[in-house]
Computed example of a mutant assay.
Amino acid sequence: MTSPFTLAACAEMLWQEKPFEWRLRRLTELGFQCGIWNWTSHDLGMLERSGAVFSSMTGYIRGRLGDEEGAAELLATAAQSVEVSKRLNVARLNLHGTGLGDRGLPVIPCEVVTGAMWLKARDTLNRIADLGDRHGVTFMIENLNLAVDHPGVPFARIEDTLALVSSIDRKSLVLNLDLYHVQIGEGNLISWCRKSLPWIGEIQVADVPGRMEPGTGEINYHGVARALKAMGYSGPVCMEAFASGDAEVALQAFREAFTI
């Protein structure tokens, strides 16, 4: 049996004691594409030399969706990220409702999202899609959980990200459907996969609780994989998770969960 999906893993979270280039090379040797976070944290020459195929990276440096000042900053730094993505041949550029700082917390927390902020977010994402169209790149907006990891992030729930992306409905703007965050925030993973299917650009996974590889928590990821295949999804699935022990054992558990 083989996986019907393109499998990737987040290099930021595995082998954290090893140099980053080593991690990229090892993931490549093991047959995985690589996910990275903020490109400004890395030497671009090193990323190029690694030989990795990059599934995704953060597609902005600073900014917010829901206000004019934040939108201007988001668009400006997204344009910078586009140039880096071309240099590294990154498939997808990831966005959030607001800039994230230490431990994934919002740089500027937002407890109440107003109607005006929704309208501005939709306008901002349309302009992001324009940027994607001009340069032939794909942006994704990622859902996050508010209860554990990302309190105070606006437009974080899968309901929010799906509403924005589906209402815009452009090929250059898709969903990064993070099932770890969905499980904590909403549950009903297969139902949300089905609702989101026309707009999914990538699926990210980790088990709950603990944010470690499939098989360490409560999610039946092999069942999710079977359902995704039955729906006709055959795109990228990225393990954005810590390893409970040996990283290669964790990666094998991930591969087995998504092999059908």
Rank of each mutant, 00 (worst) to 15 (best):
A8H: 12
A9F: 01
W15R: 06
Q16T: 12
E17R: 15
F20L: 08
E21M: 02
W22A: 02
W22F: 07
R25K: 06
T28Q: 06
W37E: 06
N38R: 13
S41L: 14
H42V: 05
G45H: 15
V53M: 14
I61A: 14
L74E: 06
A78D: 03
A78R: 02
Q80S: 03
Q80L: 03
V82I: 11
K86G: 09
V90W: 05
T98E: 11
L100R: 08
R103A: 14
R103V: 10
L105D: 03
L105K: 04
P106M: 03
P106W: 14
V107K: 07
V113W: 01
T114G: 11
G115F: 11
A121N: 12
N126P: 06
R127Y: 03
D130H: 08
D130P: 03
G132K: 01
V137A: 02
T138Q: 14
F139R: 07
M140Q: 13
M140N: 14
N145K: 12
D149I: 02
G152S: 01
R157A: 15
I158Q: 06
I158A: 14
L162N: 13
L164I: 09
L177V: 10
V182E: 13
Q183N: 08
G185K: 00
L189N: 12
L189K: 10
L189Y: 08
W192A: 01
W192M: 03
C193L: 07
C193P: 02
S196G: 03
G201E: 11
Q204M: 09
A206M: 06
D207V: 00
R211M: 05
R211I: 10
R211P: 08
M212A: 14
G217H: 04
E218Y: 00
I219S: 09
V224P: 12
R226F: 08
C238N: 10
G245K: 08
E248D: 12
E248P: 13
A253G: 02
F258R: 04
F258L: 13
